[in-house]
Design a protein around this nucleic acid. Structure first.
Length: 905
RNA sequence: GGGCGGUUAGCUCAGCGGUAGAGCGUCUCGUUUACACCGAGAGGGCCGGCGGUUCGAAUCCGUCACCGCCCACCA
């Protein structure tokens, strides 16, 4: 045990560099932590676990600002809880991201002139794996740059064998429970990617289009017609009815009659249906059940045929209407229709509009701006298409998930997001889980020669089932489709822990404590995890869902490639260090708010990192080193008791802020304490007292608290300083206990004393500046009407006051005030600054008058309040009392200012 | 159409029933031996408008205006 607080460590001889250089220090520290296993969870420990499951980034991804935000928040929480002694697991991994990844690899193949269809499924999937092995690690490397303390050896990928087994188990189970089934209905079809996508993957974009008014002749009534309005004339080939509102007087008599479908010649019924809105268009609407969600419902109600007239690439296909083509003079021409076969939907539209115009059936065309659904990946308009897909009965799964949030078993932060969650969950639609892709979990369903389904966890198992059915081996073919990526990410909270195996991790780290994500992902992912987690684990997947905002640029614009306003977090890390970026993010992350972030913000908070570094350099230069034998509860000096007490408050505030997910308040509490309290006041007060061991010990102790408080947000610089000062072994701050308040002897007295000194210095500084006292001039101050204790207190602090307020001496005022003095009212005393040489009496009079008026205004306001009988009667006693005190203070101040004014004449 | 959020100092935001705050920016001053990525001081606000509740409203309620999201709507 060393006899004094100075430890002799390996770095003892090296002083801290004059400037902090993050780019050199950060990678070294990260490697050190990782090598030392500092991020590892310990399933064997007795500590209470704390789990955060990373929202697995797409394997194709690279770190963007949104990642920087969410992962900074997560790492801050994980590091804080780890320091609190929790067995912290931050589960890493990435998502196979079906569509995104397949698109990336397809693009690469296209550069080599290869189409995936030529390659074949097996080869293609092999190429994707190859790509994943070579290029899929980008984001995990970048997460290290950010300082993310993930438990890397536990890294998982949604297509791992283990996770794939979980997917198959879940699918088979839900199928057997009747919660997964096949159905033929309309889906959102992306003609570019040629797959079904879910409602959530559809984005409505405003399009300036047209509204075409088309005359449909009434059958058997020459010259009569009914006009329909449509934004999609090309779909008329698939029309099977015209609908009007049953109460619409204009058309009521037509219900039950027929129209001739122009171009096609087919006869369509006019049906009465409340879907038709008399206010919209012409009040008569064409019904195309196979290409419109509403029309599909109308078609069902009226048992209409549902011919598809567009294929999977959204090209015209006539197979299902070929039989119904019929020539009608001046109205329909089968040859024309046949000429449309194979045309793209846009070309078909042009051709059809031209033909209608030629036939005089186009009544008018109006410009029309409307929302058109686009695939958010492919970027082309979605085509509602009638196909057979796999569906999950989300309604059944949603019920317990809703209940879990209602009863508070899972709590959203901020709470208002629960409404968003409820609104969607209570009206949830069947979840289309099949995708016509090659990259993903292939659906574990095999078909027999007669089309019979065998859903099983493996082909062998399916074969066994088939054998039982057919009495012999059968040639089985597996379903070609893969599952929606969110189907597997929904299992993430338990599949990563080894489910369906009963691993020790599964029992220990499920449910997780916090899920951190953006609101845009509540439906996609949070909802699915809730549903699947509860269904398969019998408990919610996490206790809290912390929803943060979006990262925007400085002007509040959403970052996008097209706007060219993307900020690359890695550039910021290179330039300012990860700590600066992370602290900036924490400081700006208020509840339910988007984060407006620009380089200037990060540059600004880098100054804080530098400030901390310099404060540490000051300590180093003054032999301020940690002393394990120091006991803060035995502190004797007012100065040390004062800073220890302030540190207690900082610890309390920072901890409370983190508990409440208030990262902004956490950052602010640390910032204020470090910069304002520690650097600006304590260090300055300590300078003349550094000869005292207790002052040095306290300084070191408080610096240690600062390093610990800041570590979750600024892991690198704090660890570096911690190690260099020998607070602990190398790489040890990450696992050093989080500070807790300690009892400080007579803290209130210390606070009162130092607050007075701070006030004295501030007031004198203020007057000196205002009176234009040259900074180099030292002036004496005299205390008028000061109690002996006050005078003694002032003299005790003469050293720092001399330096900070530029004061040469402090005495009681004996006799008359020197001519040409400035005066400051400070509690019961008046501070007199003899400034004969420099003072301008007129401006001093103005200044004192202004001060007096300010106090008088204050007094008037309070007096008014206290004169109000209702206030005195109804307001709480302590509020009334407080106002009486404030009034007394204000009145005393007025008196002292009046006296001061009288003295200068 | 339904819902949610926002409107507070030049900018970004905190405060959400009892004395209007912070950071940045601005202005003035300062090379005091940790730090000029610094220090000191100053200026700057009918807390979006209008009603209401209350002894008391930036804060609660109603209403309007504007901004931004989400869901529904694809005639």
């Amino acid at each position: 045990m060393a006899s004094c607080g100075i430890r002799v460590g390996p770095q003892e001889s090296e002083m801290l560099d004059k400037t902090y250089n993050p780019s050199e220090i950060e990678p070294r520290l990260y490697e050190g932590w990782e090598r030392a296993g500092a991020f590892a969870a310990d399933p064997g420990s007795n500590a209470r676990p704390f789990t955060i499951m990373i929202p697995p980034p797409n394997v194709t991804g690279s770190l963007h600002m949104g990642h920087a935000l969410t992962f900074t928040v997560q790492d801050t929480l994980i590091r804080w809880r780890r320091m609190q002694g929790r067995d912290a697991l931050w589960q890493p991994g990435s998502d196979h991201a079906g569509i995104a990844t397949q698109m990336v690899v397809e693009r690469l193949l296209a550069e080599q002139g290869v189409d995936r269809r030529d390659l074949g499924r097996a080869k293609f999937v092999e190429r994707v794996w190859q790509w994943k092995d070579e290029s899929g690690g980008t984001i995990t490397r970048q997460l290290r740059r950010l300082g993310a303390s993930l438990d890397w050896p536990r890294e998982r990928f949604t297509m791992d064998e283990g996770l794939s087994a979980a997917v198959r188990r879940v699918f088979v189970t839900l199928y057997r429970q009747g919660l997964i089934y096949r159905d033929k209905r309309l889906v959102n079809w992306d003609p570019k990617l040629q797959t079904a996508i879910s409602d959530l993957e559809v984005e409505n974009l405003e399009v300036k289009g047209s509204l075409w008014h088309i005359r449909y002749p009434i059958a058997g009534a020459p010259g009569r017609s009914i006009t329909v309005a449509t934004t999609r004339p090309e779909t008329m080939l698939g029309d099977t009815a015209v609908a009007v509102h049953p109460e619409d007087a204009r058309y009521r008599d037509l219900i039950g009659r027929q129209v001739v479908l122009p171009l096609v010649g087919r006869l369509l019924p006019i049906v009465g249906d409340e879907y038709s809105d008399p206010e919209k268009g012409t009040g008569a609407v064409k019904i195309t059940p196979a290409h419109d969600f509403n029309d599909f419902e109308v078609g069902r109600r009226h048992a209409l045929p549902m011919p598809s007239i567009l294929d999977r690439q959204a090209r015209v296909t006539l197979a299902e209407i070929a039989d119904s083509l019929a020539p009608v003079e001046g109205v329909a021409d089968p040859d024309f229709v046949r000429s449309l076969e194979g045309l793209d939907r846009a070309d078909a539209r042009r051709a059809i509009v031209a033909e209608l115009e030629r036939l005089g059936l186009l009544e008018k065309v109006e410009p029309h701006t409307h929302q058109v659904p686009h695939g958010d990946r492919g970027g082309v308009p979605i085509e509602p298409l009638l196909t057979v897909q796999w569906y999950c009965n989300a309604e059944v799964l949603a019920k317990p998930a809703i209940e879990a949030v209602e009863t508070g078993r899972t709590v959203f932060v901020p709470k208002q997001w629960e409404n968003t969650f409820f609104a969607w969950m209570r009206d949830i639609q069947p979840w289309c889980i099949s995708r016509q892709l090659w990259w993903g979990h292939q659906i574990p369903c095999w078909y027999g020669p007669d089309g019979r389904e065998f859903v099983a966890e493996s082909e062998a198992e399916a074969q066994a089932a088939a054998r039982a059915q057919y009495g012999s081996d059968a040639a089985l073919t597996q379903d070609e489709d893969v599952l929606d990526t969110w189907f597997s990410s929904g299992l993430w909270p338990f599949s990563t822990l080894g489910w369906p195996e009963q691993t020790p991790e599964l029992g220990r780290y499920y449910p997780g404590d916090v899920l951190v994500t953006g609101f845009d992902i509540i439906f996609f992912w949070v909802a699915r995890m809730m549903m699947q987690g509860i269904h398969f684990m019998g408990d919610v997947p996490f206790r809290h869902v912390y929803i943060h905002g979006l990262v925007r640029d400085e002007r509040g614009q959403k970052m996008s490639k097209s706007k060219g306003n993307i900020i690359d977090p890695l550039e910021l890390i290179d330039k300012y260090g990860a700590d600066a970026l992370r602290f900036t993010i924490c400081a700006l992350t208020g509840p339910g708010r988007d984060v407006k972030l620009g380089a200037a913000r990060v540059e600004n908070y880098r100054r804080f990192v530098t400030k901390l570094w310099n404060a540490a350099r000051f300590c180093e230069m003054n032999d301020i080193r940690p002393d394990p034998s120091f006991d803060p509860s035995q502190a004797t000096l007012p100065l040390t008791r004062w800073i220890l007490d302030a540190a207690n408050r900082a610890v309390t505030e920072a901890t409370a802020a983190l508990e409440a997910f208030r990262f902004d308040e956490y950052a602010a509490a640390c910032y204020r304490f470090t910069w304002d309290t520690f650097c600006d006041w304590f260090v300055e007060f300590a300078k003349p007292a550094l000869g005292e061991a207790e002052v040095r010990q306290t300084a070191a102790h408080v610096l240690g608290i600062i390093l610990r408080l800041l570590h979750p947000a600024m892991p690198f610089v704090t660890e570096e300083l911690w190690d260099r000062f020998g607070y602990g072994a190398e790489y040890s701050l990450i696992r050093t206990p989080w500070p807790e308040p300690v009892a400080v002897p007579d803290a209130a007295a210390a606070r009162e004393e130092l607050d007075w000194v701070v006030k004295l210095i501030s007031e004198v500084r203020s007057v000196r500046t205002e009176m234009n006292v040259p900074p180099g001039t030292l002036t004496p101050i005299l205390l008028r009407d000061a109690a002996p204790a006050t005078l003694a207190r002032g003299q005790r602090w003469m050293e720092p006051v001399r330096r900070l307020a530029r004061i040469s001496s402090l005495e009681a005022l004996a006799g008359d005030m020197p001519k040409g003095s400035a005066q400051v009212v400070l509690d019961e005393a008046t501070v007199v600054l003899p400034l004969a040489e420099v003072i301008d009496l007129a401006s001093e009079r103005v200044r004192l008058t202004r001060e007096r008026d300010k106090a008088a205004g204050e007094a008037r306001k309070i007096a008014q309040k206290l004169d109000n009988a209702d206030f005195v009667r109804r307001a709480p006693e302590e509020v009334v009392e407080e106002n009486r005190d404030r009034l007394a203070t204000a009145q005393a101040d007025i008196a002292r200012f009046e006296a001061a004014l009288a003295r200068i004449g």
